[in-house]
């Protein structure tokens, strides 16, 4: 057993070094595939985070009339909070609303004209978050029920529906692209490994003729495939970590204030995915490629 393992590892490394061009081709293809896929994963994670952020923003906003009593407001808040589909209700006073508006103007670099008016034009508001952005239920009806409290309910239902639809479509498209690119790349990698194996068809033939068992023929190639996968994965991770900071900056600029972070979890997942995928594709690719020469 030990001599078998030693033999397999020795042959795998020998095979890798003696066919530098093919090994290099396989490794580079592997790296390209892994970069492509991790790029897709990063983009899709960003997209997913963005979509969730937007979905969370979906809320029912009710502008209150000026001068409504605190009891009336509290009563309304209690009524709305009692609804099963509501996640939370928050009250924004006129002052807080004005401040938020001013901050928004400042962030957009526009001139603040609110100081000129002398009175605060921003109404107080209730912001209702629903648990599922697609399900509103009786929220709007409940808000409009007490007379004279609510001036206007912002009709966000349609917007919310559109966003939910859009995010669903985007997720599906993303998944389809990942699967398609993944399969394409898988076949390319397998094909490259197959060429590396074919380059040594003579050797395999001799092994078969002198009575080598299938395991002795197969495992050196599989180990070589695993090695290509591992090497490709390691180089990809190196490149990604080098490119990590610039990517971060670029995405930060694009997404602006959206809280799309590349957190620890994503990094770990990516690490596992890149190495795992490389090793699995390398191993399976070699297995399939050698199989052709074994079946008789």
């Amino acid at each position: 057993m030990i001599s078998f393992l030693a033999f397999s590892f020795k042959r795998a490394l020998e095979g890798f070094w003696r066919n530098k061009v093919m090994s290099l081709a396989a490794t580079v293809t592997m790296i390209l595939m892994l970069i492509l896929i991790s790029g897709l994963v990063i983009v899709l994670t960003g997209l997913e985070a963005g979509l969730r952020f937007v979905e969370e923003k979906v809320e029912v906003q009710a502008f209150l009339n000026d001068g409504v009593s605190a009891e009336a407001v509290n009563g309304l808040v209690a009524d709305v909070e009692a609804l099963p589909e509501v996640a939370s209700v928050s009250y924004t006073s006129k002052e807080a609303g004005l401040n938020a508006f001013r901050e928004q103007l400042a962030a957009q670099g526009k001139e603040d004209l609110t100081a000129v008016t002398g009175v605060n034009p921003i109404p107080a508001s209730l912001n209702v978050k629903v648990k599922d952005p697609g399900v509103y239920g009786d929220v709007v009806k409940t808000l409009e029920a007490p007379r004279g409290v609510v001036d206007e309910v912002l009709e966000t239902q349609r917007t919310a529906d559109a966003i939910v639809n859009l995010s669903g479509v985007l997720r599906t498209i993303g998944l389809v692209i990942v699967v398609m690119v993944g399969l394409t790349v898988l076949f390319i990698v397998i094909n490259t490994i197959r060429m590396a194996v074919m380059a040594r068809a003579d050797e395999i033939e001799i092994m078969r003729l002198v009575g080598a068992s299938d395991a002795f023929i197969r495992w050196p190639f599989i180990i070589e495939g695993l090695f290509v996968g591992l090497l490709g994965g390691a180089i990809t991770l190196g490149l990604l970590s080098l490119a990590g900071d610039p990517i971060h900056q670029v995405t930060a600029q694009i997404t602006g204030e959206l809280p799309i972070g590349f957190n620890e979890q994503l990094t770990q997942q990516l690490l596992a995915a890149v190495l795992g995928l490389g090793v699995v594709v390398g191993g399976i690719g070699a297995w399939i490629s050698v199989r052709t020469y074994l079946i008789r």
Partner: peptide, 11 residues
């Protein structure tokens, strides 16, 4: 030696 190595002959 290859013929022996690939058939698992002890070194």
């Amino acid at each position: 030696a290859f013929a022996l190595e690939v058939t698992g002959t002890p070194r």
